[in-house]
């Protein structure tokens, strides 16, 4: 079984707890409970007393059977270890995405192309990184401002490109994760 890192462990615990609470339900069971009962007695209690002035508050504790609601956590079949394994797999997938991107740069399958008069140049004051469609990935000059930025950009685009090649829709979240993972790798975070 894969082992999650410390962030993975914390994430797994959080996921597990959230799942337990999300699926929690209240189960009612008969239970003997102690009930506080209050009555008032006349201070000068006499037969047929009609005043009941200066009442005394008398509290007694009695036991009786009641239906009591007990929170029942869970409802999901997943154990904490299942969550740990999921997190670990996720981390491994991210690391693999980083390694793939590095390999692609090293073996030349990733290429940096800069084009003039492209969308990137027109809006370069605030937008100049990369464009992706099914055939091309363009990298703008602002993506080259740092190794971290470039790594993030290329890993993001490679993820899209690979997804297109697999016939996927190139959805954003995994590409974003891949970019962050490689940027983190460059920063020395993993």
């Amino acid at each position: 079984m894969a082992i999650a890192g410390i962030r993975g462990i914390l994430g797994a615990v959080t996921d597990y707890a959230a799942d337990q609470f999300r699926n929690a339900r209240t189960k009612y069971v008969p239970m003997e409970v102690e009930v506080e009962k209050v009555r008032y007695e006349c201070f000068n209690h006499v037969i047929n007393c009609k005043n009941h002035e200066n009442d005394i508050r008398v509290v007694t504790k009695e036991k009786e059977w009641r239906m009591v609601g007990i929170p029942e956590f869970g409802g999901s079949d997943k154990t904490l270890m299942d969550y740990m394994e999921e997190r670990a797999k996720e981390q491994i997938a991210k690391n693999t995405a980083s390694q793939n991107a590095v390999s692609a740069l090293e073996d030349g399958t990733a290429e940096i192309v800069t084009k003039k008069d492209s969308l990137l140049d027109r809006v370069k004051d605030w937008w100049n990184e990369e464009i992706c469609d099914e055939d091309n990935s363009e990298v703008g000059s602002d993506a080259l401002i740092s190794e971290e930025e470039l790594a993030n950009t290329i890993a993001h685009e490679l993820n899209h490109a690979r997804d297109f090649l697999r016939g996927g829709e190139a959805i954003e979240p995994p590409a974003y994760d891949a970019g962050n993972a490689l940027a983190d790798f460059i920063r020395g975070g993993r």
């Binding site: 969308l119 605030w126 100049n128 990369e130 469609d133 993506a143 685009e157 190139a170």
Partner: peptide
């Protein structure tokens, strides 16, 4: 016709809550 890019969002931009990040794709 469409084009998708990723980079730096303008400072004034706020995401539209109705749009789910999980469903965004290149197309």
């Amino acid at each position: 016709c469409s084009e998708h890019a990723s980079g730096w969002a303008p400072q004034w931009w706020d995401n539209l809550e109705a749009i789910s990040f999980e469903r965004l794709a290149s197309m």
